[in-house]
């Protein structure tokens, strides 16, 4: 049995990681809530964003945190274009088709990353990558603390944007009542693409926050996509508060099952939660309806 200190430390680190996971899931749940589609390419796009951070760091020497505005804008544009030019037209408005098209996109992105960067696992070392904050008896990785703070700040910004700005109001209108919104002169296609772009921008921020402590390889997306789906299902599809809380829960579950079940078997905790949530509570803890 572990001492209480080790367990509490794992709990705290789980919460910090969970905040970043929540940001990844936030993009997914936003897209689901508005477009009612499951974006299977979410993980692959995150992997692409992480490689973009590495690339910019190598070329311009920019610190990952400094890159946040730059990458957020680039990935917003990328997401906007993807939805407008590929996903929307290719799927003919059918649910299964969207799943298949985004699966196809994820395969393309993943393998182009493989072709471009090779299969090596990479990481980005900064001054604070291995530094820790000592909080009482507990050691917390500095990058994780910064990451969690950044994730919470981004979520707050997104919430403000959705509740205060005109575009945000249009997004919420489309999410609630597509036809009614379009009768008010809102361009549904544009709002869909903006929402998808916002989802991708969340990923870009998450990538910048992840890289100082997490490694990346072209196949990493499939690991994150399942984590993100689990959070979104647990929190309730489309619920932003749910995604934040779900992220924290999953971060803790991952850290605990890693501690108690070991590195290899530990991954099972998340998948089991995912299956159980889908089977018994598909509306999630905070979702209104499935």
């Amino acid at each position: 049995m572990y001492s209480a200190d080790i367990i509490i430390e794992a709990l705290l680190n789980g919460l910090l990681t969970g905040a970043i996971y929540a940001l990844v899931a936030l993009g997914l749940t936003l897209v689901y809530g508005v477009l009612h589609i499951i974006n299977f390419a979410h993980g692959a796009l995150l992997a692409a964003a992480m490689f973009a951070v590495l690339f910019v760091n190598q070329i311009l020497g920019l610190d990952p945190y400094v890159q946040i505005p730059l990458l957020a804008v680039i990935f917003f544009g990328l997401g906007y274009g993807l939805q407008r030019l590929v996903i929307g037209p290719a799927s003919h408005g059918r649910d299964e088709n969207i799943l298949l098209v985004t699966l196809g996109l994820s395969i393309i992105i993943e393998n182009l990353l493989l072709a471009g960067f090779g299969s090596d696992t990479r990481s980005l070392n900064t001054d604070y990558s291995f530094a820790v904050f000592e909080v009482g008896p507990y050691l917390l990785g500095q990058a994780r603390v910064f990451g969690a703070a950044g994730a919470l700040a981004t979520a707050a910004l997104l919430w403000l944007f959705l509740s205060r700005s005109d575009t945000g109001k249009a997004i919420r209108a489309v999410a609630r009542e597509k036809i009614g919104a379009s009768l008010q002169g809102i361009s549904v296609g544009h709002v869909y693409a903006v929402t998808f772009g916002l989802g991708c921008a969340c990923l870009a921020v998450a990538a910048c926050l992840l890289l100082p402590t997490f490694y990346v390889n072209p196949r990493i997306g499939s690991a994150y996509v399942l984590v993100a789906f689990t959070i979104v299902v647990l929190g309730g599809m489309g619920s932003i508060v749910g995604a934040m809380l779900g992220g924290l829960i999953i971060g803790v579950v991952e850290s605990m099952s890693g501690l108690f079940l070991g590195e290899s078997l530990g991954q099972i905790g998340i998948f089991l939660i995912f299956i159980l949530a889908l089977l018994f509570k598909p509306t999630g803890l905070f979702g209104a309806k499935a």
Partner: peptide
């Protein structure tokens, strides 16, 4: 990557 494109 070609498989993915073929799927889309």
């Amino acid at each position: 990557a070609v498989y993915g494109a073929v799927l889309v």
